[in-house]
Each structure stands twice: as structure tokens, then as C-alpha cells.
């Protein structure tokens, strides 16, 4: 599924003294099968942007297109099943008496048969490493466990596009890594992922393309390496290190992920020894 934003503006509380233009003419496309990261400071419009992807928020002006068609003509329930949105702090929305029921809620609402629901719930809990919690109350879990259960609830709807708003904030580093593996797994199976993050180091590990927002406008958009090497303020530690080393040793290239960067820096040290 391809999602396009065409000159989208979004104004909160229009016509009042609290009026804020959160998006000021944003155009971009989410291509099928990619991981697109949306980065930018607090208040830059990241959350407002991703809430337009499934029309949870409607543009004040401009359009959202799904596979070339104006998203407003699609049924909202269908749109939200196909584009799964995981909110910031999604654990606040857990509500069912046990984890299984909570994760089953979405697929059941979509009319999925009970046998299939059961299978999906078990598969998804397994995938997120929380299958052993199925019978527990979601309120008696740790923060990291709750987060994974909440994400499972969206994944179990088998969305074509998974949208994650700050999915790793507040998680321990190992849990963060496991969640990013899940993100990569979704992409490897042909799914599309849009991820909002403050953590540029994690963006470097998962993103194919990066969109940098500043004050509601797209400041940079493109392949991760192109964006990071052009915008040092929004570059992860790997890129910042490699860019500095490249001043004296241009052979280091433009690595982005940790693995690429380590190999490139080893190259600089190794080549000089021969």
C-alpha cells in the first residue's frame, strides 16, 4: 500500500487564540515495503503527521491518498485495519481483563473468525516475546511488558502499514533492540513501517528513508545516508563519527548502521597498517 500526503496543512484550534499550525504544507509518500523514520524535535509535528496516515486527524487543507485514491472515500474502519497505528505510551489504552483478550480485541472487531483470532493472538504474543503472559492482567505487568502487549494488539490486526509513534521511549536498551528486530521482521515480510523516534541511533539501525520535520515543515527527506550526511544536527553518533573521520580519511565512506560504521572505521585503521 502506498500512502501519499499532498500539501497537508493541519491547524489546531483554528480561529481561537490557541490556534497552532502544526503542519504547514507537508508532501511526502510512504512507499510499500519500506521503513520510513520520522524525526524532529518536540513540537515539530511528528505525531500530527502520523495521525494523518489513517485519517485519525483530517487535513485542514491538502489530501491524503491511499494507492492513489483520496483516503476520505474509504471506510474509516477499513482504513484503520489496513494502517495500524500504535500511539505514544500505548500501554495507557490496555483495558481487558487479561492479555489474550486485549490483543484479541482488534481482530475480533474486524470480524475475524474466533479460530483465526486465537491463532493470530498466539503468534503475535510469541513474536513479541510475551506469550507466557497471555492469562495475566495487563495492569500487573512491567512497563516493557505492557508496551509489547499493546503493540501486539495492533500487529494482530495484520495491518499492511504499521505506524509506531515513539515505540521505544522509556524501554530498557535490550527491550528496545528486540522491538526494533520486530520492526525489521515486519519489513522483511513485505510490510511497511513508519516509525517516529527521538533516538537517532535507533533510526540509523532500521530506517530505509528518513523524514526530518521542523516546525511543521519537511526539512529533509530521502535515503537515510543522504539525510544524515547532509543534516549533522539530525545525525546519529555513527554518522557524526564517520563524517569527522572522513575529513582526513575520505575512504571511510558514508556508513549509517553500527555494523557498517564499525567496518568502515576498522578499514581506516587497517589500511594504514599495511
Amino acid at each position: 500500500m502506498k500512502i501519499e500526503l499532498e500539501d497537508v496543512r493541519h491547524v489546531y484550534a483554528a480561529g481561537t487564540t490557541f490556534e497552532v499550525a502544526a503542519l504547514r504544507g507537508v508532501s511526502l509518500a510512504v512507499e510499500p515495503g519500506e521503513v520510513l523514520a520520522v524525526v524532529g524535535g518536540t513540537g515539530s509535528g511528528k505525531t500530527t503527521l502520523v495521525r494523518h496516515l489513517n485519517l485519525l486527524l483530517e487535513p485542514t487543507s491538502g489530501r491524503v491518498l491511499v494507492d492513489g485514491e483520496d483516503a476520505r472515500v474509504l471506510r474509516r474502519s477499513e482504513l484503520r485495519g489496513r494502517i495500524g497505528l500504535v500511539f505514544q505510551s500505548p500501554e495507557e489504552a490496555l483495558f481487558a481483563p487479561n492479555v489474550f483478550e486485549d490483543v484479541a480485541f482488534g481482530p475480533r472487531r474486524m470480524g475475524v473468525g474466533e479460530e483465526e483470532v486465537e491463532k493470530r493472538v498466539q503468534d503475535t504474543l510469541q513474536r513479541l516475546g510475551v506469550a507466557h503472559l497471555a492469562d495475566r492482567s495487563p495492569f500487573a505487568l512491567s512497563g516493557g511488558e505492557k508496551r509489547r502487549v499493546a503493540i501486539a494488539g495492533v500487529l494482530a490486526m495484520h495491518p499492511e502499514v504499521l505506524v509506531l509513534d515513539e515505540p521505544t521511549a522509556g524501554l530498557d536498551p535490550a527491550t528496545r533492540g528486540e522491538l526494533l528486530d520486530v520492526v525489521c521482521g515486519v519489513r522483511d515480510e513485505g510490510g511497511t513501517v513508519v516509525i517516529v523516534s527521538h533516538d537517532l541511533d535507533e533510526v540509523a539501525e532500521v530506517a530505509d528513508r528518513v523524514c526530518v520535520l521542523e516546525c511543521g515543515e519537511v526539512r529533509a527527506f530521502g535515503r537515510a545516508a543522504d539525510v544524515f550526511y547532509a543534516e549533522p544536527r539530525y545525525a546519529p553518533a555513527t554518522v557524526r563519527t564517520a563524517a569527522l573521520v572522513a575529513r582526513d580519511y575520505p575512504g571511510v565512506g558514508r556508513p549509517v548502521s553500527f555494523r557498517e560504521t564499525l567496518a568502515a572505521l576498522r578499514g581506516v585503521l587497517g589500511r594504514e597498517t599495511t
Binding site: D172, P173, A174, T175, G177, D201, P236, A237, T238, R240, T241, L244, V245, F258, T261, L262, L265, R266, L269
Partner: peptide, 28 residues
């Protein structure tokens, strides 16, 4: 379940002391 900061992990992978460089500038 603790993970070293990226700069420290790069330092470690390059055979440098992990606690020493703390910023990309110091590592570079």
C-alpha cells in the same frame, strides 16, 4: 539488559577503551 552507548561500542570494537571517548568528536 544494559547496552553501552553507540560511541563506547564502536570504541570497544576498535580496540579502544570503552569508557574513554564519550562523544563522536572524541572517538573520531
Amino acid at each position: 539488559r544494559l547496552v553501552l552507548p553507540t560511541v563506547s561500542r564502536l570504541a570497544l570494537g576498535l580496540g579502544l577503551p570503552p569508557a574513554k571517548p564519550r562523544t563522536p568528536e572524541e572517538l573520531a
